[in-house]
């Protein structure tokens, strides 16, 4: 079991499978979890807390039955436990209002429009995860392979200097 979790939420199973396939390479460093609705995602978060796992990044669709993506991001951002997690919207249809809401109150870190390019998605996710690790994880070395190695090594170097 990995310490950090990468969570993907999309009501469309085919889209969700595509995202999971794209992010598969990160599966060694992070537990990759998938949920088909915000409600399911909430249950998952509770379970993670019980397992002492922490949410590192959420990649979320907006237009979904029940709670919508942006509202969920706002909810996470107001929750101390998940505030640190990187937040991505992967959507074809968040209107301007919803997007502004996500930026202002949801702590939105990135917006990817559907349809997306697989390598770009992975690159952005890696970038955000690198930032998350640098901000939250004392043991950086483990993540150098798989994330932005250069950034991580220079951070390791900087930390040693400051000691």
């Amino acid at each position: 079991m990995n310490k950090y979790v990468l969570l993907c939420v999309d009501d469309e199973r085919e889209v969700l499978d595509s995202v999971l396939a794209d992010l598969d390479t990160l599966g060694d460093l992070f537990d990759i979890e998938a949920a088909q609705s915000v409600e399911e995602a909430r249950e998952l978060l509770t379970e993670m807390q019980q397992n002492q796992q922490q949410l590192a990044l959420i990649l979320c669709d907006h237009m979904m039955p029940g709670t919508q993506g942006v509202d969920f991001l706002v909810e996470l951002n107001q929750d101390k436990t998940h505030k640190a997690a990187k937040k991505l919207l992967l959507t074809g249809q968040a209107g301007l209002d919803a997007t502004v809401e996500a930026v202002n109150h949801g702590g939105l870190d990135f917006y990817i429009a559907k349809p997306w390019q697989g390598d770009e998605l992975v690159a952005h996710v890696q970038e955000l995860l690198t930032d998350f690790i640098l901000e939250n994880e004392p043991d950086l070395m483990r993540y150098a392979r798989g994330l932005d190695a250069e950034k991580i090594f220079s951070a390791i170097h900087a930390r040693r200097q400051s000691l």
């Binding site: 469309e12 595509s18 396939a21 794209d22 074809g92 997306w116």
Partner: peptide, 9 residues
Amino acid sequence: NNPVAAILR
């Protein structure tokens, strides 16, 4: 857009 995205991916 959703099925198109899934097909492309």
